[in-house]
């Protein structure tokens, strides 16, 4: 075995036929999704019901919205662990505004602006000061959620206006929730952004080789900054949805979401080392995670046990192609 690790492994899938490599990953995800769907339908008689399936979507829409922006960020070689803390801080700010008597439009604006601001703060630290994003966002994660704790302590904000409940609980048509529509719209927007614009190509270029991208005239710092802002923005939007769905704010809101979002992104085939991935994969991964948690929930499996399945799914789905390739390669 002569596997010499490069200083930073560059998964340059771009010079292979890109479509075939990506397609096989998504094909795998589709198979997994269908399998889980089928198992669920057999395991529980309540599963194949439009209202059940509609409930199912709430399991992944909020995290999925963040996962789109996170996918772009991870493709560019950075990461943001502070997304759940941004949700907490934005939700706290919205709660404060409610106490001050703000109406629904102001609340939504505050949630989005706080999210954007937090993302910009992360982006500034990473791009201006050249700091490693994983450490910066561990720090800002404590800072953002810590600020929520300082403001709220062990209290909770309640009393959100009636009209505010629409975002997290409302339905656009029949069983199609507002959250699901937003998720699908965001999926299309991010798919277009990543796969059909020069911005998206630059994101891939940065992830594959930031130095080469820099010398090719790509403004690495600026694009990374924009990606951090986008991630913050999506976290702000998610915060509006969650706060609206729960109808209350505690500083511990959305605890641990960051790891679930990253799991979703990685499960979707985005290389954690940067430079490869697709939005379709992330959408499929979001569905799969929703299906697994909801299906197991119908079988009265406790949430903590579901997390075993998510963890196993993550490792197995990543390991499977590697093992398969190795067996085929005769090593």
């Amino acid at each position: 075995m002569t596997d010499i690790p490069a200083p930073r492994r560059i998964p340059d899938r771009l010079d292979k036929p890109l479509s075939s490599a990506i397609f096989s990953w998504e094909a795998l995800l589709v198979v997994v999704a269908i399998a889980i769907f089928a198992i669920n339908s057999f395991a529980s008689p309540y599963f194949l019901d439009p209202y059940s399936l509609s409930d199912l979507t709430f399991n992944f829409t909020e995290k999925g919205l963040i996962a789109f922006a996170m996918a772009l960020l991870i493709i560019s070689g950075e990461i943001d662990l502070s997304v759940a803390a941004i949700i907490a801080l934005a939700s706290t700010m919205m709660g404060m505004a409610v106490q001050a008597g703000a109406g629904t439009p102001v609340l939504v604006l505050i949630g989005i602006v706080v999210g954007l601001g937090c993302g910009a703060f992360n982006g500034l630290l990473v791009t201006r000061l050249g700091l490693p994003s994983i450490v910066v966002t561990i720090g800002t994660m404590s800072l953002f959620r810590g600020t929520a704790f300082i403001i709220l302590g062990d209290q909770a904000y309640k009393g959100y206006p009636e009209s505010f409940a629409f975002f997290g609980q409302g339905y656009v048509w029949w069983v199609v929730s507002f959250e699901l529509v937003l998720f699908l719209v965001a999926a299309v927007v991010y798919w277009f952004l990543l796969h059909r614009t020069s911005f998206g190509r630059r994101v891939f270029a940065i992830g594959n080789n930031p130095v080469a991208a820099q010398f090719s005239g790509v403004r690495v710092g600026r694009i990374k900054f924009i990606l951090f802002c986008l991630t913050g923005l999506m976290s702000g939007i998610a915060s509006v949805l969650i706060t609206s769905r729960l109808g209350s704010t505690r500083p511990s809101i959305a605890q641990g979401y960051e790891l679930e979002v990253i799991t979703m992104v990685v499960l979707g085939g985005v290389s954690i080392l940067g430079g490869a991935g697709s939005i379709v994969g992330v959408v499929l991964a979001a569905f799969i995670m929703g299906l697994v948690t909801f299906g197991l929930g119908l079988l009265n499996v406790p949430g903590i046990v579901m997390s075993i399945f998510i963890g196993l799914l993550l490792i197995i789905v990543i390991a499977l192609p590697i093992v398969w390739r190795r067996l085929r390669g005769g090593r």
Binding site: G139, T140, M141, S142, L143, F144, R145, G146, T147, F149, I150, L152, G153, D154, P251
Partner: peptide, 8 residues
Amino acid sequence: FWQMAISG
């Protein structure tokens, strides 16, 4: 409750 923000 200040601890988290301070360590951050």
